[in-house]
Design a protein around this nucleic acid. Structure first.
Lengths: 292, 292
DNA sequence: GTCGATTACGTATTACGTAACAATT
DNA sequence: AATTGTTACGTAATACGTAATCGAC
């Protein structure tokens, strides 16, 4: 029967162009490869090469075979990773999130309720990556800003986050009770990096603005005090801040400035995560953010 | 590295429940299986079983592994079939069609233009089957009643077919110039079997009618002459019939009674099929149907 | 006692290596 | 002369078989 090593050999030949070079890469001899491929053709019941005296080239069937086999080999490697990650998930809670706030909250909760588990987190604004990562057990839990309606997963709401614009009292927008992205489109805005999907919201909603992206939180906070530039805050980070007389926080009314986070996990992991919703209800964000 | 035979062994254990029974089925000894599975666990770097002194049971990782491996093994078998069918397609034109008329036409055309090729045809009203069959090269050409918009396939229109109701002159509906399915819903109608998707159209559009399905064409034709029952004809079959004074053919106006057939094939097979459109334009259906 | 699993050790299959050869560049 | 692929035959890795042991029902 056909085995993976034969497929890998065929793929190597396709990539290297000749038997000899493929044999070198595979660390076997040319004659060994010759016979191995002959067996493969016998087992498949199909001719894969056009053989001239001194030259072998893949025929149409061979090209198709290589194409399919590359996928099969990839699938096997994917399986191995998946199984290893799945076993890891017994000791490690791996969180993938579209935004930073859920990570802060989840770390805080797990450190209290599952302190025997290690915790790892990844911020990724690409939703497809997160979903794929959940599927192959790279993540045991992902957080998106919407539920995921799939048979094998469960989605539970965690908490919500609303965006505010923070400006000095003298700023022209400071008099408004609420504003929209349009009102500040074009103005320079201070922005923290590593804020997940919020970044893409900003790029999309205030495309004319110059986003002064800051890597360092300390620098960012310094700049918000020292400059008259507007910056974004959220309902979460506001809870941690002491009342700041020098800044006025104005809620953004656009629906994009409002996020409800959902924890999404494999149904069989419900015993680990189903109570998260409840935990978030009693969460003291000030305490959470002080420890980040 | 992990090979298919190891996966097949694990799957056998999962199905049989014990090592011993699995070993019997695999025609190897228990000790051989024991070590093989141990190697598999080593290679994967993962524990698949919970081992009690006298009992082995799959743990969660093991169950997941079996699930994935079943798919991988299936994919390999699928590949083998696909390659064999692909090689066959060099000698055999395999047609899958949603209706019989395109098969008649295609056979006729290929017998003239590609008489060195064998021809095989399958009537299947399940569109997904046809598309799947095209994908895995079970069919070199499929015929649907709509084009298929996919990157790797090409769709070309072949011809159209319209449905008529055939009734004796004394029939209450005989006076109409055109009718709709609704007009005859509830009446008994003679119907040939093996008419592909037309059958499903009838079931859907005249659900209250009693469909008197006939397997045999001779019997069907006899009944259309001997009885006063209405029956369906199509623009294609009408071209083959001699003028029949005893039946009046009324076109159906519903869009469902109108079909445009599309030939769909892998782009790389264009050299075989791209001229079909042109061939159908000059096709003498009377001749075609006489030879069926 | 039977059945299921593991370990130890010998056997056999088969993938691989070496050598020799033919053909193309 | 150098490179590519095939055939013939010997070698070695490894999957498998046999025998023996342990525990559970």
């Amino acid at each position: 029967m056909i085995e993976y090593y034969q497929m890998e050999q065929l793929i190597a030949i396709a990539q290297e162009g000749t038997l000899s070079k493929a044999a070198q890469r595979l660390l076997i001899s040319q004659p060994a490869l010759t016979r191995s491929i002959q067996h493969l053709e016998e087992d498949l019941g199909v001719v894969l090469f056009e053989r001239k005296k001194n030259k072998m080239t893949l025929n149409e069937t061979g090209k198709l075979a290589v194409e399919i086999m590359e996928k099969l080999v990839h699938d096997r490697d994917q399986m191995i990773r998946t199984l290893q990650l799945f076993e890891q998930s017994k000791f490690l809670i791996s969180i993938g999130s579209c935004a930073p706030a859920p990570i802060w909250g989840l770390r805080h909760i797990f450190q209290e309720t599952a302190h025997e588990m290690k915790i790892k987190d990844t911020l990724d604004s690409n939703e497809e990556n997160l979903i794929q990562g959940l599927k192959n057990h790279e993540y045991s839990l992902i957080v998106l800003n919407h539920p995921l309606d799939k048979e094998s997963y469960e989605s539970i709401p965690l908490f919500e986050e609303n965006l505010y614009l923070s400006v000095p009292p003298a700023h022209p927008l400071a008099m408004f009770k609420e504003i929209s992205f349009d009102d500040l489109n074009g103005q320079s805005v201070l922005l923290l990096s590593r804020i997940g999907f919020w970044n893409e919201i900003c790029v999309k909603k205030i495309p004319k603005s110059h986003l002064l992206i800051q890597e360092d939180v300390q620098v960012f906070q310094e700049l918000t005090r020292a400059s008259a530039l507007p910056n974004f805050k959220s309902s979460i980070t506001l809870q941690a801040d002491p009342e700041n007389e020098n800044r006025i926080n104005i809620p953004l009314i656009d629906p994009e400035a409002h996020a409800v986070y959902y924890g999404i996990y494999h149904k069989k992991d419900a015993y680990l995560f189903a109570s998260l919703s409840e935990h978030f209800r009693h969460l003291d964000w000030q305490k959470v953010i002080q420890t980040t």
